[in-house]
Design a protein around this nucleic acid. Structure first.
Lengths: 229, 229
DNA sequence: GAGGCTTAGTGTGTACCTTACACCATGTCA
DNA sequence: TGACATGGTGTAAGGTACACACTAAGCCTC
């Protein structure tokens, strides 16, 4: 198929910055480029927006095609449109941010036909295009957002301990938090449900498990509640 | 000039939501469309992005062409890419937000060859395309942003009184603020310079004039200061 | 089974920030 | 000169943010 326009127009792409949390690290999902330019370099998953496809759908589709991830909550981050950011031609890219529970997605990404892999956010390879700039902005946004939205809960398994939650926030914010104050605040949101279970198979006192009260969160969010951590 | 591509691609536009402040109201700058679709309807100023033009430049250029405003601080807001938002063809629009001192710009906009006018934000006409959605998001963003960034200063003349500043914040936030607390905070930022002048020609005690210390603001902003109001 | 190791779990005091609140000062105008 | 309109000022109380250290529980090993 070929098509003609009166004036040249920029190409439009989407790129996704997908964060996941490991026992150890906050990670970001990258793919290795199979084509020029930047063939063999790591890059954010993404690609061209089809003319009959909404931006969000394009982001979800590209993410699924390139990494196998689906059902991910994607949020628009920023649109990058500097001249020369793609050596081939003028390309404007709408960047999206996503958060996933790493445990749910580790295998899929690793076994997909295309090479996709999780990298610790403070040990990423050189990226294609201006993707380092996009990634840096996404990480900044994540750090800001995590302070007033309980998005951290999205990154944990359904049942988790308060220490896991705290470690998660420490990884994202990249600084230590006080245990007592953290627990006070986390429980103070009223969004955690204490379960009648504790951790299994740990070589020390087992911690109580909690789950996130998603319904309550949605109710409060609708009513404009705030959630500083 | 005509150009062919292998695949059809969305058209790319920019739209600008420009806020200004009046003695009375927070206003938004609209233009009346001269062409189909939505001919005669009011709309946000904006237009097509040229293939050799950065997004920010396109927004500044369109704003200047359509309303005569230049030298405006523009900030990217969000990118709107739903299907069917333009009846002609697929158009993706990068929306920008701008803040201007209304006094400086009132005449230019009104006397420009194209019809452009300021509307009170709570009395806008029906808008073309999905511009009402864009406008609503911009207003939300403005309300949020004004709380932790001293952007309010951009909306006043170079010399202003604390009452004017307070009224501005009250208009934007759409709620009354306590005078003493407001003055404490505003002066507490250290960003206001007290001048040796007072208002002229008022039928009551004249208020002291202040100016915004832009240099200090830029210095603090670079160092990651915060400015809750 | 005792002692040590590891992580879980808990409360208080202080400093600061937020908010509520009322009166006198100054200039204009009639 | 008195009334009117807005300018300009401080304090007290309550709440929030933060710093800080010890005991509890379970497992392991010796």
């Amino acid at each position: 198929m070929s098509v003609a326009y009166e004036h040249p127009r920029p190409a439009l792409t989407v790129d996704c910055v997908v964060f996941g949390l490991d026992e150890e690290d906050l990670k970001v999902l990258l793919i290795r480029r199979e084509l020029e330019p930047f063939r063999g370099r790591w890059a954010l998953p993404g690609g061209f927006v089809r003319v009959d496809e909404a931006l969000d759908d394009a982001a979800r589709r590209e993410l699924a095609e390139e990494t196998g991830l689906s059902g991910v909550f994607l949020e628009q981050l920023y649109t990058f449109g500097a001249l020369g950011r793609d050596p081939r031609e003028r390309v404007v890219s709408v960047a999206y941010c996503a958060l996933v529970k790493l445990g749910d997605h580790r295998v899929k990404a690793a076994t997909d036909a295309r090479e996709a892999a999780w990298f610790s956010v403070d040990d990423t390879p050189a990226l294609a295009f201006d993707h380092e700039e996009i990634f840096a902005m996404a990480l900044e946004r994540l750090k800001g957002k995590v302070r007033y939205r309980p998005i951290g809960f999205e990154l944990l398994p359904p049942k988790f301990t308060l220490s896991q939650l705290q470690r998660l926030y420490e990884k994202i914010l990249d600084r230590p938090l006080d245990k007592r104050n953290f627990r006070k605040k986390a429980l103070g949101t009223g969004l955690l449900v204490e379960l009648d279970e504790v951790e299994q198979d740990v070589a020390h006192r087992a911690a109580r498990l909690y789950r996130f009260d998603r319904r309550k969160y949605e109710r409060l969010e609708r009513d404009g509640f705030s959630f500083e951590i």
